[in-house]
Design a protein around this nucleic acid. Structure first.
Lengths: 234, 234
DNA sequence: TGTTTATTGTGACTAAAGTCACATTTTAGG
DNA sequence: CCTAAAATGTGACTTTAGTCACAATAAACA
């Protein structure tokens, strides 16, 4: 197995660091009225254009964030995994959601109501500083994403996407086990930013080149190092 | 002159709101060691990959933020005008800059050193709350930008870009005067996210359709309403 | 376990945008 | 004000990726 030194940080929000070592009382404030729910694959948590009522924390599962245009074309710009928070931007900016969030697999997600969250950031300067830092980082991540879309070919973007997603689908405990990406071709195409047919053809090429292996919809990266070369980041 | 109701907010950071009604003592803290400089067109303020030493405030002029890829291709993702702050993300996230900033016209820019700024956000909860709010908004702006790049044609993006830039180039005092966009075809192409040649051809088309007027490099929008229809946002 | 429905894969074609080479115009500096 | 250099504009061509129509698999579930 090829090992790989890749700047995942450039493409991942670090919202999981918000809780790290947060004082008991702040955590208590946040979790006071927290409710936890099970979701099936494909359920929508919130929609672009609606008003926020709270923030979300993923205990288990995966959530895609995307925008749908007039013609119904969907662009996924981020996939959240367990341990990540989301939905706080619209709340803090006092605006409507600018994107839609839905589960892409069975998930267990906690919801913290608006007032608790806002009170918590008012009360806890540690929490608000954490958020400030996280959002500053997120800015860079989105800028990188924007540049990738504007400057990279579809083939390069697919290579990059596979690496970023592998990191998402990696189980925390099993560091060196092979990772199976389990999402539809359609979603992968929307994440890469291309047509499904184009994506399918490229997946075929990658297979022929011995870079990946597929099993049904599932994709396993055989040569991450070579794939990272295709991504052509530096 | 066509009047137009356009959601500029979706495409503009609102960093100018940071100072609005900020208490005297907080402003004093920020401006303690502030230095103000004149810059010629094309000067670089900071580079992608370097470490931040402070934040910037534009008194006069315009600054582009962009990323350059391996092959030297540049993508401009934002144009700052007078009244806007920039350069704080990398400082707060304690990371290197993820983009490059340079003037696109003669500018007067103030610099607030790192320590003053960091101390100010530690001391002033008003300031840090403002920043939190601004960055939450910025998140949405970048997401919108990403969706535009992924989902819109070059023609649509040009229409949108012209409207967004007109708002930037509009003089604060002269609300209803015609606005001349004054930036190179090259920069406009990099903002739209296309090749210069493609941009030039589209500018030609827009002229033939009577939507705009050019005078040397300068572009005046004659029919903003029609242009906003081309942008095809809703 | 069969059967229907959804997803994935493929071929042929089209459209959009990029590239290259060069002419023309504008701008800046001496 | 003249001239060199830079920026803009145009034509011909190439490349990349998208679209449409449909075949082949895989997944869901009755």
């Amino acid at each position: 197995m090829q090992s790989i030194d890749f700047p995942f940080d450039k493409f991942n929000f670090n919202s999981d660091s918000i809780l790290e070592g947060l004082p008991e009382e702040d955590v208590a404030l946040l979790t006071k009225s927290m409710v936890t729910h099970s979701y099936k694959k494909g359920e929508i948590l919130f929609r672009d254009g609606s008003y926020p009522t709270g923030i979300y924390f993923i205990k288990k599962g995966k959530v895609k964030k995307y925008k749908t245009d007039k013609e119904g074309k969907e662009q996924i710009f981020y996939v959240y995994r367990n341990g990540e928070f989301f939905g706080y931007h619209a709340l803090i900016s006092e605006e409507k959601f600018t994107d839609t969030a839905s589960t892409i697999e069975e998930s267990i997600i906690s919801f913290i109501p608006k007032d608790d969250f806002l009170q918590a950031i008012q009360t806890s300067s540690i929490l608000s500083n954490r958020l400030l830092k996280v959002m500053s980082h997120e800015f860079g991540v989105l800028v990188n994403g924007l540049a990738v879309l504007a400057q990279k070919t579809v083939r390069e973007r697919l290579a990059l996407s596979l690496l970023v997603l592998r990191d998402k689908y990696k189980k925390d405990n099993q560091e060196n086990k092979p990772v199976e990406l389990d999402l539809s071709r359609d979603d992968l195409a929307k994440f890469v930013g291309t047509a499904r047919e184009t994506l399918v053809r490229l997946i075929h090429d990658f297979k022929e080149e011995g870079l990946i292996e597929t099993n049904g919809r599932k994709i396993t990266l055989l040569k991450p190092l070579d794939i990272s070369k295709i991504a052509n980041l530096y």
